[in-house]
Design a protein around this nucleic acid. Structure first.
Lengths: 143, 143
DNA sequence: GTGCTTATACTCACCTATAAACATCAATAT
DNA sequence: ATATTGATGTTTATAGGTGAGTATAAGCAC
């Protein structure tokens, strides 16, 4: 289970250091792909294989489903973590996520997400979660 | 069950000593998250795992749900208590709770809360609970 | 009250993670 | 061949995290 929020930066070669707490939970490599809300999703290999299995079963009969499957598969890249704990962000994904230099890396349960700092701030102000809503959700869930 | 109120301070490395009465009830480590009303929530591991299970099943299909799940997972950090009974407050949570140096740590049933002293005072004067209200609540609950 | 014990606060020293600068190498284009 | 680009590797500095020791304060027994 991935949790936590980390502010990191890209170096001039588009590499970013993966938070040390996350490294061990990937077996050295993982899959990075286009995510929802202009962020990047990162899945450990086993988790990605589960997703592949599920996506394989989606019927190709409707256009939205085909678009979604293409979005997910075409965006995916297998990435590695080097000896210094860094990983390269492929240029197409970097562009997709509007990443310049400052990024926020968060743990979200079974996956890790990489956000450009600007997009992360925008998402949080757009979503604009109020305490009342959070409290209500928590109450619903019995937390 | 956690009860009581303690005034403590952060050291220069953002560590605070956990009240001795609470230490044994965490198994050495626990999870700290963003809470309601600008305080931090601390859950024992088992309690947090219950929450994780509930959150994992929330569908990712709507934006508010994604925001809520990200708020919880990204806001969470697993913390440890060192041999001197101290624990580190991660910088993003410190900032979230507007903590400078003086904090109030309170026991609230299944969780512990950490407040900045200023926010705690403000909350209590804002909430402005009267004895009559307390008495009515107690009566409702049959206390 | 006195003295003992424990909790909290503070200081110093060390270690690890991150950021940044620079070097190497292969592939490609000029 | 030379320059350029992208990928990979190495080194160093700094900041943040971790650990240990001491001092002060609070609680408790006598």
């Amino acid at each position: 289970m991935f949790i936590g929020e980390y502010k990191h930066t890209l170096d001039s070669k588009n590499r970013v250091s993966m938070p040390a707490k996350f490294r061990d939970d990937f077996g050295g490599s993982f899959v990075m792909t286009k995510g929802l809300d202009n962020c990047l999703f990162i899945y450990p290999i086993e988790e990605w294989e589960n997703i592949e299995r599920k996506l394989k079963d989606i019927p190709m009969t409707n256009k939205d489903a085909r678009a979604f499957v293409r979005f997910f598969f075409a965006g995916a890249t297998e990435c590695e973590i080097d000896k210094q704990g860094r990983t390269l962000i492929p240029s197409n994904l970097k562009e997709f996520a509007k990443i310049d230099k400052d990024v926020v890396i968060i743990g979200v349960s079974t996956r890790v997400e990489i956000w450009s700092l600007e997009e992360w701030n925008r998402f949080n102000s757009d979503a604009n979660i109020t305490y009342e809503e959070v409290a209500e959700k928590m109450s619903q869930l019995g937390i």
